[in-house]
Simulated scan of single mutants.
Amino acid sequence: MVPDDIFQYMGVVRLLHHFNWTWIGLFAVDDENGDRFLQILMPLLYQNRICCDFTLRTPKRTYTGDLINRISELLDKYTVLVKSKANVYVAYGTPTSMHALRMLVFEAEGALSLFPGKVWITTSQWTFESWTLQRIWDTQVFHGAISFTIHSNNPPRFTKFLQTINPSWAKGDDFIRSFWEEAFGCTLKHADEHEHEPCTGKESLESLPGILFEMSMSGQSYNIYNAVHAVARALHAMYILRANPRKLIEGWRMEFWNVQPWQVHHFLRSIQFNNSVGEMVRFNENKELVTVFDVTNWVTFPNSSFTRVKVGRLDPWASPGQELTLCADQIVWHTSFNQVQPISVCNDSCHPGHSKIKIEGEKFCCYDCALCPAGMIAEQKGKQGEEEFEKCIKG
């Protein structure tokens, strides 16, 4: 039910290519998943003539005792954020590592006095949802971020269901109890035993800032929702088969109440249905969920709230070259760019009559421009409005 991450990595490259961003910074969680991310993405970047100014590995957890020490170590490297010409940062990690990234940025901003405005590009694991300590942290540094999010939609009555959740449900459910107490700063136990006031039971999830709780279903939850319905339909098909003892599957008779997991595969393979939102749920010949990613623009506000704006889609099943569609004019950029499309290159393009000269020891995205010798002209490459002059040829 979870799309292969490689689709997102390809989407990141196509997004960079779309805006001609060739000089970027990379953040990857410091674990085997981050290793795989870099191992797959780096060759894709190189093939598309995109360079990385730096790569920083972020802690994978936010609750380890040595996190503060780790942050102090990383802050020494964060001066690169001020010196870098890259205006685009690509970040990958799990939700917990994203919490650590936010902490690192928060600390870096305090240590460096000014954290430069950037375009953050993130994978579907990105979320603004924070633990309670981070609710007071400024989210403006991530204003205008772009992420590939697993497509989702709110099932009927989902919002109403969230509006009915009450702390009385906490009986036997430690998750609701601990979340309720942390989110609303109250206690569900006797107030005289704790420093917090007792919860009234009238608290509303809608009143919480988006960084603590969103009233819409996430892409991961939407996939779980569809998974439950897929299995339910598969079991229903098995039940119908059991009700007709004449039907056989590959030579064996089904005993419905003694179902083995491998027996469900036969039915799941052919599952295809419209869910309660009216969207098709099906698998391809490789047993992969056929789905798309939404390209989401995150617009943040000073009160720690935010809104998601869908500005495009990434469809891995589309025709080659048509996978990414964007409404670029709808994207809100970080305020430091004054709503002008950001530029993220190591060098400005060479002017007509000049060619690129490699700088020894630098990456190929960085170069000098030299005047062509007499009798030669610069060879023009690229689309109109995106001209590049790479080498001198005979005129």
Rank of each mutant, 00 (worst) to 15 (best):
L241A: 07
L74V: 06
T55D: 12
G11P: 00
G382H: 03
H236G: 11
A370W: 03
S355C: 00
V231G: 07
K363G: 08
V332E: 09
I377S: 09
S168D: 15
M376A: 05
L268P: 00
G210W: 03
Q380P: 02
L16A: 02
K118D: 01
V90P: 06
I271G: 00
A108Y: 04
Y46R: 05
M376V: 06
K189A: 09
V290M: 01
W257H: 05
T64I: 11
N226D: 07
Q339C: 04
R61Y: 06
S336C: 08
C350R: 13
L41N: 14
I357E: 02
H236M: 13
A328Q: 13
C327K: 11
W169G: 07
E390A: 06
K287M: 12
V12L: 04
F306A: 09
V2M: 10
K383T: 13
K247E: 10
N33W: 11
Y89H: 13
T132L: 07
L104F: 07
T122E: 13
I359A: 08
D31Q: 10
M42C: 15
F161H: 09
M217R: 11
W137D: 01
F293N: 01
W126F: 04
N87W: 09
A100G: 03
A230L: 06
H229F: 02
K60C: 12
S336Q: 03
G144F: 00
V141C: 07
D329T: 11
R233Y: 13
I71V: 07
G361M: 08
T187Q: 12
T122A: 09
F7D: 15
L188V: 12
Y367Q: 04
R269Y: 08
T325A: 08
E250A: 12
M217D: 06
T335I: 11
L289T: 10
L45K: 06
M280T: 01
R157M: 11
S168R: 10
Q220P: 14
Y239E: 04
N33T: 07
L56I: 15
Q47V: 02
E181G: 01
S319P: 14
Q380T: 13
S147C: 13
D294E: 08
G25F: 02
W257P: 05
T127K: 09
N347H: 10
P167W: 05
R253M: 14
C346I: 13
S276A: 15
L44H: 06
V141Y: 08
K391C: 03
L212E: 01
I6C: 15
G201M: 13
T200R: 14
K356E: 06
Q8H: 00
N154I: 00
Q260V: 14
L114E: 10
I136F: 05
I50G: 02
W180H: 00
S152C: 01
L235A: 15
A191M: 07
V309A: 05
